[in-house]
Amino acid sequence: KSAVKALFDYKAQREDELTFTKSAIIQNVEKQDGGWWRGDYGGKKQLWFPSNYVEEMI
């Protein structure tokens, strides 16, 4: 599983989504079709976030 870095702040709209700030590192990313991926951040595990808010880390 990979890690991504947030390009923008994102505030969860639902309880199954992540809230994060710009430059946050989201771990254990599971990529899905449809523009939403799952990952771990801030003590939350495998919640959804919009993939267009992040960049992949190499």
Rank of each mutant, 00 (worst) to 15 (best):
G43Q: 09
V54C: 05
K44S: 12
G43V: 07
D9C: 10
M57F: 14
E55P: 01
K11V: 15
P50C: 09
Y41I: 07
E17A: 00
Q13F: 07
R38Q: 09
I58L: 12
Y10V: 01
G35Q: 09
R38P: 03
N52Q: 11
K11P: 08
E30K: 13
D33Y: 09
E30M: 14
A12L: 01
A3T: 15
N52V: 10
W36Y: 09
L18D: 01
Y53T: 09
L7K: 11
Y53P: 01
K44V: 08
E15M: 10
N28F: 05
D9E: 08
S2Q: 13
K45R: 11
G42M: 10
Y41D: 01
F20V: 03
G35M: 10
W36L: 04
M57S: 09
R14G: 12
Q27G: 09
S2M: 14
L18Y: 02
R14A: 14
Q32M: 15
W36D: 04
N52Y: 10
G34S: 08
V54L: 03
L18W: 04
L47G: 15
E17M: 02
M57C: 15
V29C: 06
Q32W: 14
A12I: 02
N28P: 03
L18S: 01
T19G: 07
W37D: 05
P50N: 05
A3R: 14
G39A: 00
Q32D: 11
W36C: 07
L47N: 09
K44F: 12
L47A: 15
S51E: 09
E30W: 11
G42P: 02
K11I: 15
R14L: 08
I25R: 04
E15T: 10
K22P: 05
T19Q: 07
M57K: 05
K45E: 13
K31I: 09
Q27N: 12
F49T: 01
L18R: 00
F49M: 01
S51V: 09
S2L: 15
G34T: 07
Q13E: 12
W36P: 02
R14H: 13
L18M: 06
K45A: 09
D16A: 06
V29L: 03
K22E: 09
D16P: 01
K22G: 06
F20N: 04
E56R: 04
F8K: 14
I25S: 03
V4A: 12
S51N: 07
L7R: 10
L7Y: 04
D9I: 00
V29Q: 01
W48V: 05
K5T: 09
Y53F: 12
E15R: 08
S2N: 13
F20C: 05
F20S: 01
T21H: 12
P50R: 01
I26C: 04
M57H: 11
R14D: 10
N28A: 05
N28M: 06
F20W: 01
S2D: 11
A6S: 04
I25M: 08
E55W: 06
R14V: 08
K22T: 10
K1Y: 10
F49A: 01
Q13C: 15
Y10L: 00
D9N: 07
Y41P: 02
A24N: 07
K31C: 07
D33W: 08
L18Q: 01
L7N: 07
E17T: 02
E15A: 11
E17Q: 11
I26R: 02
M57L: 15
G34F: 05
Y10W: 08
I58F: 13
Y10C: 08
Y41Q: 03
S23H: 15
D33I: 08
N28V: 04
S23R: 08
A6C: 09
V4H: 08
L18H: 06
Q46M: 08
Y53V: 11
K45F: 14
S2I: 15
V29A: 03
T19K: 02
E56Q: 08
L47D: 04
K44I: 05
A3H: 12
I26T: 01
D33E: 13
F49K: 02
W48Y: 10
K5C: 14
N52S: 15
Q32P: 12
G39Y: 01
F8D: 10
K22N: 07
K31A: 05
I26P: 01
G42R: 08
N52L: 10
P50M: 02
F8C: 15
Y41V: 04
N28C: 10
I25W: 08
E17R: 00
E17Y: 03
M57Y: 14
F20E: 01
Q32S: 14
W48G: 04
Q32E: 11
E56N: 08
R38A: 06
E15L: 10
N52G: 11
E55S: 10
I58C: 14
D9P: 09
V4Q: 05
F20G: 02
K22M: 10
Y53G: 03
D33M: 10
K11S: 14
K5L: 11
D40M: 00
V4L: 06
A3F: 13
I58T: 15
D16V: 09
G42K: 08
G34I: 05
S2K: 12
E15F: 10
E55H: 08
A3I: 15
D33Q: 11
D33C: 14
K1C: 15
T21E: 14
M57E: 09
Q13N: 10
A12P: 05
W37G: 03
K31V: 09
R38E: 03
Y53N: 04
V54I: 06
Y10P: 06
G35C: 14
Q46I: 02
K1W: 08
W48R: 11
G39K: 00
S51T: 09
T21Q: 12
I25H: 05
I25K: 05
V4E: 03
G35S: 08
Q27V: 15
S51F: 06
V54M: 02
D40G: 00
I58S: 14
S51Q: 09
D40H: 00
I26S: 01
G43T: 10
N28Q: 07
K5F: 07
Y10I: 01
D16C: 15
I26E: 01
E15N: 09
E17K: 00
V54W: 02
L18E: 04
D16S: 09
D9W: 03
F49W: 02
I26Q: 03
T19L: 03
M57W: 13
K45I: 15
G43K: 07
K5I: 14
E55M: 11
E30L: 14
E56M: 08
I58M: 13
S51M: 11
Y53M: 12
E30C: 15
P50A: 01
V54P: 01
E30S: 14
F49Q: 01
K1T: 14
Y53R: 07
I26F: 04
K44H: 12
Y41R: 01
K1E: 10
M57P: 08
P50I: 00
S23W: 11
W48N: 04
E15V: 12
Q27E: 15
Q32I: 15
V29D: 02
A12H: 05
W48Q: 06
N52P: 06
K5W: 01
S23Q: 10
K45L: 14
D40T: 00
Q27I: 15
F8W: 12
W36I: 01
I25G: 04
D16Y: 07
Y10G: 05
W48P: 01
N28K: 05
A24K: 02
G39S: 00
A24V: 08
F49V: 02
T21F: 10
V4D: 01
L18V: 01
E56W: 07
A24H: 05
F20P: 03
I25C: 10
F8P: 06
I58K: 12
R38T: 08
K11W: 13
K44L: 12
F20M: 04
K31R: 13
G34K: 07
E55G: 07
S23T: 10
R38M: 10
G34P: 06
I25L: 09
D40Y: 00
G39T: 00
Y41S: 05
I26D: 01
Q32Y: 15
E30P: 01
S2Y: 12
T19W: 07
K1Q: 13
G42W: 06
I25A: 04
D9F: 00
Y41N: 03
D9G: 06
D16K: 04
Y10F: 06
K22H: 07
R14F: 10
Y41A: 06
W48E: 04
N28S: 06
W36A: 04
Q27S: 13
Y41E: 03
V54F: 02
R14Y: 11
G34N: 09
W37T: 03
W48C: 07
Q13H: 09
K11M: 15
I26W: 00
